[in-house]
Write a protein that binds this DNA or RNA. Structure first.
Lengths: 250, 250
DNA sequence: CATGGTGTTTGATCTGCATCAAGGCGCGGG
DNA sequence: CCCGCGCCTTGATGCAGATCAAACACCATG
């Protein structure tokens, strides 16, 4: 099937003993460096809905998502919220050289993060140029994703936004490969309607309505609340408004 | 006056013989490194409206804006456009490690850029860790700006968007200091209504209407088409919907 | 089996911004 | 001086998505 085309490559590969090796900071580290990182590393778990840090709070670590989904959001004084980052396994959070978090970091699902104490991490970074390079690459990728997201927020219709989000998650979902039989994609949509609406700059009612519309038209099939099946990925892709061959990332 | 509060710090300081020293890549370079950079450096000028590179085209340089304003935009197949980057003097364009530009780069005003051939620039970067560090800092700043921008696009009203844009430009305009007498700010708004609409995810008619509204209410005064005076910055800031003390950057 | 809570769907109505359309202002060129 | 062009303003109208409101599905708990 054309389903396993470059359009839906798995996003992260390397998994060894260190969970954050996926694509993150220490993927290329060895020996001494790796030991140093191991020593400042610790794990933290959160339940779905829990807040990891509040905007403005002190954040004395950097981290990588091991399992689950974390979100970054901003809140206006009157409560309007916009998600500005969606972190899937292997993604990185935290800003070297800054004391406090600029965003609310929240566990969208149950979440495990691999954390590094910030100060020592920064020291290691200074002695180990390739960690900085890796971080630069990752930050540039994130910037590209943010800009793709800006196009979505500024110019797409509600329907296009929903289709885009589903495609973005589908592309990143590592379990795809297993399920990509007979040209259909089956995967988990691990966000509530509310989280989706915060991602997309819509209300949750609009999200729900547009999901129903796509379902009625057969572009997606839902199994239970969170399982999604895409019978024909290319067909859904046409609803995103994107160039048919565009290869963007989250 | 409270006008010269931290809210409106000038954005870039260091100006020496090399124009891109402002805040850009070679600010900390000396001796040999600087010589190496000088050798791969050249200037390019563009007239307002000219395109620097088209999305998808080969981009074999990285660059820093010397004077004028450049924009990055994305275009959908049907012509909808969203600006995703606004580059003022001292800002950096170009992505080490990528062959082609992901965005249209356009001169919004007459523009001078200081360019470095990409391949040799990357080589210098590898031998000179602090250039990479500088680039990482700058990229992180840009990511923050992009996220602030996402909040604007996703959740702000047309009126708030306009007020925000004016405040953003005002904060970054280096000529502020000179004009900040008697508590009023006078500066140039160097974007057409169309460019503003592309920045904000609005139509140009809406931009025009909201500008008129702010003018009628006395929150801004216009002198000619492009000169803007803000009688009371804090008053305008209240219209942005942002936290009153938020210190974000473009 | 009722109970309450959380997340979702669907309907009715309202509204902010887009769209379509016309005219105004300033400026450079014939 | 008039004309045309680029840019901006303003008006009339329409519609996508927000808002308000109700009810449903699912599940855990007493």
């Amino acid at each position: 099937m054309t389903r396993t085309s470059p359009k839906i490559q798995p996003y992260s590969q390397e998994c060894s003993d260190c969970p954050i090796r996926h694509r993150a900071v220490c993927a290329r580290c060895e020996g001494e460096e790796l030991d140093a990182l191991e020593q400042i590393k610790y794990y933290r778990s959160f339940e779905a809905g829990q807040t990891v840090v509040w905007a403005g709070d002190k954040m004395d670590f950097v981290a990588s998502v091991v399992t689950g989904i974390a979100t970054l959001s901003q809140t206006m004084e009157d409560g309007r919220r916009q998600m500005v980052g969606l972190l899937l396994p292997s993604d990185f959070v935290g800003r070297p050289g800054r004391e406090t978090s600029a965003y609310d970091v929240t566990a969208a699902t149950d979440l495990v993060m691999c954390c590094f104490r910030k100060k020592p991490f920064e020291d290691i970074m200074l002695r180990t140029p390739h960690i900085g390079q890796r971080l630069l690459e990752m930050t540039l990728d994130e910037l590209d994703a943010a800009r793709e997201w800006m196009l979505l927020l500024g110019r797409k219709t509600a329907r296009e936004k929903i289709a885009s989000l589903i495609c973005i998650i589908a592309r990143r979902d590592a379990s795809l490969q297993l399920n990509a039989a007979d040209g259909a994609l089956r995967f988990d949509l691990p966000l509530t309607r509310e989280a989706m609406s915060e991602y997309l700059g819509l209300t949750l009612e609009t999200v729900s309505r547009q999901m129903s519309a796509l379902r009625k038209e057969g572009l997606i099939v839902t199994e239970g609340k969170r399982q999604i099946v895409i019978p024909d990925f290319d067909l859904l892709l046409e609803e995103t408004g994107d160039d048919s061959d565009g290869g963007f990332l989250v």
